[in-house]
Amino acid sequence: MDLFSDLPEPTHTVPGEGHPKTPVPSLFDDLPPASDTPVNSDKEICSIPPVTKEVKAEKRKAEDKNGSKVQKIAEKKVCKGIPKLKGYVAARKGEREEMQDAHVLCDLTADVSPLPDSVSHLAYFAVFDGHGGTRASKFAAQNLHLHLASKFPKGEVSNMEKLLKKCLIDTFRQTDEEFLKHASSQKPAWKDGSTATCVLAVDDVLYIANLGDSRAVLCRVFEEENKKITALPLSREHNPTQYEERMRIQKSGGTVRDGRVLGVLEVSRSLGDGQFKRCGVICTPDVRRCQITPNDRFFFLACDGLFKVFSPEEAVSFVLVTLEDQTLELKEGKTLQDIQYESACHRLANEAVRRGCADNVTVLLVAIQH
């Protein structure tokens, strides 16, 4: 049985890439606005309120005494039963001179109007790992979710999954084009680039879009199977050593040396990196869909700094051990869950640095409450 699945492929061609994309093999506030993460910051981000199945209100039309039509009454939604999501962030500069990672947690519900009839709530989580500077990751953190909200399907729609995949692909393309236009106008031109791993929670379904080597991982615990723990990969890495990625780069006239594009760039898909776009580096994300189940405890997004010293399974186990730590000190104004997840997020980032990761480390941990 598939635990998650790829979304159907939208029928469109990405400008500048010459051919339609093939399907991916296999597979939200009170939140602060997008901002830079201070070095060594540990932040608990407030929760996404619980929501539920939408009860469609009867749409009524009436005419006033002058015969003009009154606007349709807004559809009402009843909120209960859908998992509550709460996010926590820890970021470490490591041994790098500057912090090039960026992250965003935000509620997009109010930014999409009218919401599709089948949707009650939208939440967005993202991690961006910059290289060559901080400008691409900052730009993506400030703009990508705004484009996503503006392109999100509205009102009555059919085939939501197909529309969402197209929406996410178009959002990444627009963000990339805008950054490259701005970067090329500078003197000297900016050469920054960034990975992107984004999770859009649509009620109880996660849509994951990613470029590069940052990752998203879901913890699923099967209580009926003696608490069997599974670390489900929600994203797929893109590096030039992979066959399909290398073939695309070579067909575009680029080369792969020492596992890098032109012997320089470690990823084969990214935002920015204008000097590598002619060599087959693209901004088209893989898009996957995952249904949240009662067995799901949390998911996390992290840059490659974490995965240089942790496997996904080790990271999940590390978080679970902290969540079960009975010695954590209670703090006034914070729930036990806040303390547990905050500590788990902080400890995971700290441990990555202790294990010798010299890169920036950003961990965005999202608790799932049923």
Rank of each mutant, 00 (worst) to 15 (best):
S214Y: 04
V287C: 14
N40V: 00
S214T: 08
T22K: 05
G94F: 05
T109I: 07
R289V: 10
L148C: 14
S158W: 00
V24F: 08
L105N: 15
S5G: 03
L336Y: 14
G16S: 12
K93D: 10
G212L: 01
N210I: 00
E177P: 12
K228R: 13
F310S: 10
P23E: 01
N66L: 09
E97C: 12
Q340T: 04
Y88K: 07
S35C: 08
A352D: 08
N226Q: 10
F152K: 06
E58A: 05
E95I: 07
F4R: 02
K61M: 07
A74R: 09
D30H: 12
E178F: 09
P116C: 09
D203V: 06
Q174S: 14
V316E: 05
V112Q: 06
L365D: 11
C283A: 15
K308V: 01
Q100A: 15
V319L: 09
E314V: 02
T171A: 06
D359Q: 05
T52L: 08
F128S: 08
K65H: 06
E178L: 03
N40F: 04
N226C: 11
H182C: 12
A349I: 01
R269C: 00
I169W: 07
D42T: 02
A189N: 13
L108R: 08
I339A: 13
V264F: 01
H12M: 06
C198E: 11
K308T: 14
L206A: 11
F318P: 07
K84H: 04
L31S: 15
E329W: 01
A57Y: 06
H238S: 07
E75N: 15
T362H: 05
L148V: 10
L336A: 15
F139E: 01
D36T: 10
L232P: 01
N210L: 00
A91Q: 11
G133W: 13
D107T: 10
L348V: 08
A90F: 03
H346S: 07
P15D: 14
K80L: 04
L168A: 09
E178G: 04
K76G: 15
V55Q: 15
H145V: 06
H19D: 11
F128W: 09
